[in-house]
Amino acid sequence: MKRILAISYYTFRQNVRNRVYYVLFIFTLIMVFVSMLLSVLGGEQPMRILLDFGLVSIEFFALLIAIFTSVTTITEEVESKTIYLILIKPIPRWYYILGRYTGILLSVWTSMLLMYAFHFLMLTLQGWHPGPDYLYAVISSSLKIAIISAVAIFFSVFSTSTASSLVFSVFIWIAGHFSTEINFLTGKMEFLPAKYSVKILYYVIPNLQYFNWRDFLSTGVSFFRWMPVAVVYAVAYIGVFMCLSSVLFEKKEV
């Protein structure tokens, strides 16, 4: 456990000192400022625009940071051969995967926390006091980011190319937001091989719609009934992808 924490802390510090991380963070701040301008122009519902634009841009930049760091961390470490100095230590390889994942997640969540704090402050300064829905949105986005980070880590272990890992991870993110539509399509398909292929795809890709809290608002489902289901789903999905990554990495020659 101490050694997993050592890798996790090392990854966190590595990411925090990475300039790309700062650039994305500063860019997000600029986007939130832009949203302030838009809110002035928005007329009827400036607060809603500020709220939505801020939440969307925070999630978008957190996604960029998560995918970029998850994909590049392992691939670059293999290419630069710095991974040798970790893998020749007396640790099981899954420690490395879990340490890297938790370190990446910690750094992405930290950046999200800072961005949310800034966004929240801006909303408060504009005279709007976000209710508990804001907190629910934060939890939902954080869970989505945790899932996509696990997926990106899997691709970085599976693939030898950073570009293909990035493309696959972005594809999963997009497809994950259309799970219901994919499931609907399978019902309409008559060609059985295609139907079953798409059905498999439906089960393999994460259903990120579970984490769109706003979609559940209109259904009257209580947050406290919805959230445990979403958390269990996220933990199970991450667990499966961590296991798959560990199994693949165990057999990987570097």
């Binding site: 101490k2 050592a6 890798i7 990475n18 630069s80 100095l85 007396p90």
Partner: peptide, 29 residues
Amino acid sequence: LHLIGYLPELPYFHKKFTGKELLVFYSKL
């Protein structure tokens, strides 16, 4: 593997760390 100390050909480290930080990390591992 604790019985072995390894020096790779053309060693490379993450440039943002100090020597001490890296040695602490490898010692913990």
